[in-house]
Amino acid sequence: MDWKEIRGNWVVIPANPIGIIHFLGGAFVATAPHLTYRGLLENIASKGYVIIATPFVNTLDHIAIAQTTLLNFDRTLERLQDSGELRKLYLPTYGIGHSMGCKLHLLIGSLYSVERAGNILISFNNFTAKEAIPLVEQLNSSFAIEFTPTPLETDQLVQKQYQIRRNLLIKFSNDNLDQSATLTKILQTRFPEMVTVQTLPGNHTTPLGQDIKWQTGNSFTPFDAVGQWFKQEVYRDLNQLKRSMLLWLNPLSAP
């Protein structure tokens, strides 16, 4: 895949695009999403989706991060259209977030007027600063340090103002960081019958898995058979995640 850095975003443009993905990763792996989420994002791009992955550095002000990532996405999309790299025709735009990236997409969908065909929210968590940064109290014990908005304020904001009607929430069977339960209730109350929830095998780091391109020789050897088996076993959870996401994005497809 040919990744390009455009206005601070990492972009992949397939030959005949059928949609656009704005991707936001987890708090500590979001600075280089084209590397940390490469296997997942390239697979989605191979099915016809333009990938615009926006890096960010985590701070306490999550509203500021949401605003900046949206602005960077909009600027990059405009540049792609003005340069002719992406034709100026309507393509559905989806948000995909992992971990903290989910919270940012929720804030974007609650605070700003955006056109989204839907959001995929993977391993959502909404920790307090104390939970997310164990050393925060030691760093400055004289002040109460907290994210903006707080976890409670985030829930209330989504409950009142979130505008993206179609959502897929994905949680993993072995993920003790996931906090999708409360969000699921909020979204299902706000948009009945428009929210899909899936529990898949895996853990919080499953989306970070990297797919190995196993090349066989001129003849298929027992070593190649072992390699193929190893790949299938190790990446089974990641492949299941890819299939679920692609089927939700395009129910008529058979990924």
Rank of each mutant, 00 (worst) to 15 (best):
L135T: 11
L169C: 07
D175V: 08
A181L: 13
T36E: 02
P149A: 10
P14K: 08
L249F: 03
L91Q: 03
N218D: 12
N218R: 12
D2M: 13
E193R: 12
T196S: 14
P92E: 06
P151F: 04
Y162N: 00
F191H: 05
K185N: 12
V158K: 00
L70D: 01
L40Q: 03
V226I: 15
T68Y: 04
P207T: 08
T182V: 15
L71R: 11
F223V: 12
Y37L: 08
K130L: 06
L252R: 13
P207L: 04
Q198I: 07
R165W: 03
R75Q: 13
P255H: 12
L208H: 06
V114G: 04
G39L: 11
D74I: 09
G48R: 03
K4N: 14
A254P: 02
Q240P: 02
R116V: 07
H34G: 00
E193V: 10
T182Y: 04
F23K: 01
S180C: 11
I164D: 00
P192R: 14
E131R: 11
T93I: 15
Y90F: 11
A117D: 06
T148F: 05
A32H: 10
D155M: 09
V226L: 14
T150Q: 13
V195W: 00
E146T: 12
T150P: 03
P17S: 15
S173V: 10
L86C: 05
H105Q: 14
P222K: 08
Q159E: 14
V197G: 01
F28K: 13
F143G: 06
G202R: 01
L70M: 12
I108M: 06
L246P: 03
E137N: 12
L208S: 08
